[in-house]
């Protein structure tokens, strides 16, 4: 009898967004995504509980993250406020991102 065990820990990247993402602040967000991309995570968690505003510039960073890290990458948007969720739905991003209330 023999046993082979292959274990691999998931690499999870976590970014917390607080405040407002517009065309100016989206640049900071994008830089952070680029830093994260270098780590090649398996999953990206965006904690959006205190994200009060996101414009299309911020949504483009989300799309950029998927494009940069590979569309197979699971991205979770956690705890986003209703207006932020609505903006993502209006632009069809709810098809590509996991919008969840909690991430356990």
């Amino acid at each position: 009898m023999s046993l082979t065990i292959t274990a691999e820990a998931k690499k999870i990247a976590k970014i917390t967004l607080t405040g407002e993402v517009d065309s100016l602040t989206a640049r900071e967000f994008q830089k952070e995504i680029e830093r994260m991309a270098a780590e090649a995570p398996d999953e990206l968690i965006l904690v959006a509980k205190d994200l009060d505003f996101i414009s299309s510039a911020g949504l483009r960073v989300l799309i950029f993250a998927k494009q940069k890290l590979g569309t197979h990458l699971n991205v979770y948007v956690v705890g986003a406020q209703p207006s932020v969720v609505e903006t993502m739905v209006k632009t069809g991003l709810d098809n590509s991102f996991n919008i969840v209330d909690h991430y356990l």
Binding site: S56, R60, I63, Q67, K90, T91
Partner: peptide
């Protein structure tokens, strides 16, 4: 446009869509 997979999506267009909407 919105049904397209993200990797094929053109970069513009979301802003004006959100505006008019």
């Amino acid at each position: 446009f919105f049904a397209q997979p993200l990797e094929n999506r053109p970069i513009g267009g979301m802003g004006i869509h959100l505006t008019l909407n």
